[in-house]
């Protein structure tokens, strides 16, 4: 089930920006993070992919010294997050899911205060703030209080604040959730540029497409565990590029149709809760012809047929053989 986990035994530890071993965090009786291992190579973009409540935010918070792990250990560039927390903080920038900037202050004031806290002089702080505001296209809004900022502007300011010290490792917790496509693309460009300049980026996302666009490697996380790890291509190969959706005219023959789908395409299928639609990964489009012929021969009449690009659900289906947590029940988001 864990066919992509690559232990990377031969890897030099100095190359690792993040090295986590068996991280565990328990909130009450909810094991939010349940033994997560991560290896992030310096200079790469690493995507942590999973649904709401999978443990992504909690994992990032532990790596960023914001939360103590109940078990396991993590190293950032070789420094232990528990023992050398203050050193780790000098090497990271964190941009949270909820903008970690001061609402009642202006963009400039926020950046100046963070710069001052990081040890820059008054003049340097002002200059740095101006520089970052310009870089992130916020100069015009510099003096406005953040209350009047749009979601995208706030995210950009948040990211700008994380870059003051030019940290070699940047954590981005769902950097594009809630952004419109244009601002999302801008954010992606920024992230790519950061890596080009030598940073390492660890980002979480709910969207496969985002991980696809950006990440060199991906860890799929569910119920606090890494259920798959590998390059984007590894993952894609496992689920096929697209998935097939079939509706049957006569619901009685649903299970029969499902058997045929699984036999002909040689994959696992699923039935959606609403409307009894069969979904199956489509690794090889050519086989669909065989499938349709077999269905016709078996006398099963189709109502609708569609092909969809893979979603996170299908990744999960393919990897874990079960639906994502967000499908079966809405789990409480772990923020603590």
């Amino acid at each position: 089930m864990n066919q992509f986990t690559d232990k990377r035994k031969g890897m030099d530890h100095k190359d690792l920006a993040v090295e986590a071993r068996g991280l565990v965090k328990v909130f009450g009786d909810n094991r939010a993070v349940d033994g997560v291992d991560l290896n992030v190579r310096a200079g790469s973009i690493y995507g942590v992919l999973g649904p709401n409540g999978a443990g992504k935010t909690t994992t990032i918070r532990m790596l960023a010294t914001l939360l103590k792990a109940d078990a396991g250990s993590a190293k950032i560039f070789g420094y232990d997050v528990a023992k050398d927390a203050q050193i780790v903080r000098q090497l990271i920038g964190v941009t949270g899911q909820y903008a970690s900037v001061d609402e009642s202050l202006s963009a400039t004031e926020n950046l100046v205060i963070f710069s001052r806290l990081l040890g820059l002089s008054r003049a340097e702080s002002k200059r740095k703030a101006m520089e970052l505001l310009e870089e992130f296209g916020l100069t015009e809004a510099a003096r406005r209080p953040l209350k009047h900022f749009s979601g995208g502007m706030r995210r950009r300011l948040d990211l700008a604040a994380s870059l003051i010290a030019q940290p070699p490792l940047i954590f981005l917790d769902e950097p594009t959730t809630g952004l419109d496509p244009r601002t999302r693309n801008q954010m992606w460009d920024t992230i790519r540029r950061l890596v080009k300049e030598g940073s390492t980026v660890l980002l979480t996302t709910q969207y496969l497409q985002e991980a696809d666009e950006l990440a060199d490697r991906i860890a799929v996380i569910d119920h606090g565990r890494v259920v798959a790890e590998g390059t984007v291509n590894d993952l894609k190969e496992s689920i096929g590029t697209s998935s097939l959706h079939l509706s049957i005219q006569n619901e009685q023959s649903l299970s029969k149709a499902r058997l045929i789908v699984e036999r002909v395409l040689n994959v696992q299928s699923a039935v959606t809760a609403e409307g009894g639609k069969i979904t199956a990964p489509m690794a090889d489009a050519d086989r669909v012809t065989d499938l349709l012929i077999t269905l016709r021969e078996a006398g099963i009449q189709l109502e609708e047929l569609s092909v969809q690009k893979p979603t996170l659900d299908e990744v999960f289906l393919s990897i874990t053989g079960q639906n994502t947590a967000s499908n079966t029940q809405v789990k409480k988001e772990e923020l603590a």
Binding site: F77, Q86, I87, Q90, L132, E135, Q166, P168
Partner: peptide, 19 residues
């Protein structure tokens, strides 16, 4: 800053405590 490259961790002066 867009032209600068980011300093690697081992080139940085890191301090264990704030004085």
């Amino acid at each position: 800053m867009s032209s600068t490259t980011i300093k690697a961790p081992h080139e940085r002066k890191l301090r264990r405590k704030t004085n």
